[in-house]
Amino acid sequence: MSLAKITSVSGRGVYVPGNDIDTDRIIPARFMKCVTFDGLGEFVFFDVRHTPEGKPTGHPIDKPQHKGATILLSGANFGCGSSREHAPQAISKAGFKAIIAENFAEIFFGNSTTLGMPCVTAAREDIAKIAAAVEADPQTEVTIDLVKLEARFAGQTVKISQRESARDALVNGRWDAIGELIEGLPTVRATAAGLPYMAA
């Protein structure tokens, strides 16, 4: 299985402020009644984007000037809560290619990486700078450079970081581990043979 080497992601950004944005908020459970991930994109952040009566609330990602944004900016502990891959899938299917936040919940981070959607962290002040730039000019192109570990936008550069194992997997095109895991199957059988509970 050959995968793209993801060394950088560029696109317009949109800022969704807040800390502890949990997976229930990213994709409410009722939209998980599905047997494929297709079609989840339109339900991303659904309950924040709509009033209980179903009227749009003017959420940042619905603002006309941010339509087509591919880089999501947010606060701390993004993606906390459940292990549902529906959350990163919904974000990805909504057209996003990468997320910059102060930090991420563990399972969400891993799930996103496996989809080839980099989650990178940056200091709060720096996220605020990028957010200000995209607010001032929604056409601002934001580039997440996973090789230099920096984000560039509107003539400015800020430091970003990412767990090395994820960064390595993305830039070397092995962010989806399945190929490597399959290669390891003979060794898997040897390891399993040493564990009595694995016997058929």
């Binding site: 891959e85 399972i107 891993g110 799930n111 989806d176 581990a177 399945i178 895991l181 399959i182 898997v188």
Partner: peptide, 17 residues
């Protein structure tokens, strides 16, 4: 607790990364 792609990994290889 794992995501769906890892469910796939475990089904296919009984392992995950």
């Amino acid at each position: 607790g794992i995501g769906t792609s890892q469910v796939r990994d475990v089904l296919a290889t009984q392992t995950m990364a």
